[in-house]
């Protein structure tokens, strides 16, 4: 099997097990909806305020949802000792990383595909545009490239649910800043060219951290 076949096999394994248990997607989705509703309570929900705070709400929600789903990424592997199984397989650690990362990306995107229309509906804002979908896909990729690495770190620590956000949030702060700014511009009716400093920023983050995480993942799960 070549590299991408292995990656596809690992991603497919995660997807099948998720389709059977629906553990991550269902719980993260409910969480996402709850956060959106709670934000609605805290900001009074007039149309005027919503325009101002909506980009922030959207990205705080997705960042929290990301942590929640990334926290679960290695839990089944750990509990059933599947990670050892994966590691004795003749596959490279890089393939394990890429496979898990793509699996996580799929789960996050499924949640977001459902959450975005609901967001549009509840907040009466056009967040379901091509621009915002592009921003979401790029930013989510940024979340999962570092998130997968840190999730594998957090799984071997005490208080693992606490460790992931502490590692994750400072590192992804450029993605959050860029995504919020880009969403703001897009909601205000900005053109593609007005998104320029922000979209390339997220794309650069994605590319850089994909390479770095890909290279150092083998040091995380070596035992």
């Amino acid at each position: 099997m070549n590299f991408w076949h292995t990656v596809a096999a690992i991603t497919w394994k995660d997807t099948i097990s998720e389709m059977r248990t629906k553990e991550i997607v269902s719980s993260v989705l409910v969480f996402t909806l709850l956060v959106i509703v709670i934000f609605n309570f805290s900001f009074g929900a007039t149309q005027q305020t919503m325009k101002v705070v909506a980009p922030g709400i959207l990205w705080v929600t997705f960042a929290f949802a990301g942590v929640l789903s990334l926290n679960r990424l290695f839990v089944p592997e750990k509990e059933q000792d599947c990670l050892e199984g994966l590691m004795v397989c003749p596959v490279s650690r890089e393939a394990i990383y890429t496979g898990k990362m793509l699996g996580s990306l799929i789960f996050m995107l499924v949640v977001e595909v459902i959450a975005l229309p609901i967001f549009t509906l509840l907040f009466n804002l056009p967040v379901l545009s091509l621009q915002i979908v592009t921003i979401t896909v790029l930013a989510t990729f940024g979340f999962v490239v570092v998130g997968t690495l840190f999730s594998a770190v957090a799984i071997n620590t005490k208080a693992r649910e606490m460790v992931l956000p502490i590692l994750f949030f400072p590192i992804i702060s450029p993605v959050i800043i860029s995504a919020v700014k880009a969403t703001e511009i897009s909601l205000a009716g900005g053109s593609w060219s007005s998104l320029v400093p922000w979209l390339p920023m997220i794309a650069a983050f994605d590319a850089i951290f994909f390479v770095v995480s890909f290279l150092i993942f083998s040091y995380v799960i070596e035992e």
Partner: peptide, 22 residues
């Protein structure tokens, strides 16, 4: 693990600086 944070962190510093400046 902290070595991993040390590496990821340094790579992130220029990106953080750039994004906060913009």
């Amino acid at each position: 693990y902290s070595a991993i944070v040390g590496i990821i962190g340094l790579v992130d510093i220029p990106i953080i600086a750039l994004s906060t400046t913009l």
